[in-house]
Computed example of a mutant assay.
Amino acid sequence: MPKEEPLVVRLKARMQEMKEKELKYLGNGDANSHVCKVCFESPTTVILLSCRHFCLCKSCSLACFEGPICRTSITDRIFAFT
């Protein structure tokens, strides 16, 4: 088997870190955890319109033009305070 490139190794390691971080936030396996589905670091604070998914932090929501779950176009955002 050919040796993997250093970039591929780093990307795989980062993906594993992100998965472990998400599992830590999930705790009991709740699929609706309140951690951003893009950065996996900040809490979710934005409700996307028109799909109404509550899945992004403020900075990621401002950088996205499509919802990360359903890929529908984001028409507006509601910033929630939890």
Rank of each mutant, 00 (worst) to 15 (best):
V38G: 03
C51H: 11
R52H: 07
K24M: 10
L49N: 11
G27I: 01
L26C: 11
E41G: 04
E41M: 10
V46G: 06
A31V: 11
R52T: 07
V35C: 06
G29F: 02
H34C: 08
I47W: 02
L23E: 14
V35G: 03
C39Q: 05
E22D: 06
V38R: 11
V35S: 05
V38L: 10
T44Q: 01
H34E: 09
C51L: 02
K24P: 00
C39I: 04
Y25H: 15
E41A: 08
N32S: 13
Y25E: 06
K21I: 10
L26Q: 15
N28L: 09
K37C: 09
S50D: 14
C51S: 08
V35Q: 12
S42H: 15
S33C: 10
V46E: 03
C51F: 08
Y25M: 03
K21F: 02
N28W: 13
K37I: 01
Y25F: 10
R52N: 11
K37T: 13
C51W: 08
K24F: 12
S42A: 13
S33R: 06
H53I: 07
G27L: 06
N28T: 11
L23T: 06
V38T: 06
C36R: 01
E22M: 14
S33N: 10
N28R: 12
L49Q: 08
L49R: 07
L26H: 10
C39K: 03
S50Q: 13
T45M: 02
L26V: 01
V46T: 02
R52C: 02
K37Q: 14
C36S: 03
S42T: 00
K21H: 03
C36H: 05
C51N: 06
H53E: 07
G27T: 02
R52E: 10
D30P: 05
N32K: 13
I47P: 00
K24A: 12
E41I: 11
N32H: 15
L23V: 07
N28Q: 12
A31E: 13
L49E: 15
C36Q: 02
E22G: 01
S50H: 14
H53N: 14
R52W: 09
S50R: 13
H34Q: 12
E22A: 13
F40V: 08
G29C: 04
E41T: 12
L23M: 08
Y25G: 01
A31Q: 09
V35R: 14
K21Y: 01
K24E: 11
P43W: 01
N28M: 07
G27Q: 12
D30R: 09
C39T: 09
N32R: 15
N32I: 03
F40M: 06
N32T: 13
S50W: 07
G29L: 02
S33F: 08
Y25Q: 04
S33W: 05
T45H: 03
F40L: 07
G27H: 05
C51P: 05
V38E: 14
I47H: 02
G27W: 04
K37Y: 07
L48N: 01
K24Y: 13
G27F: 02
C39W: 05
E22H: 06
K21W: 04
C39S: 09
N32V: 08
L26T: 06
V35H: 09
L23D: 15
L26D: 15
N28P: 00
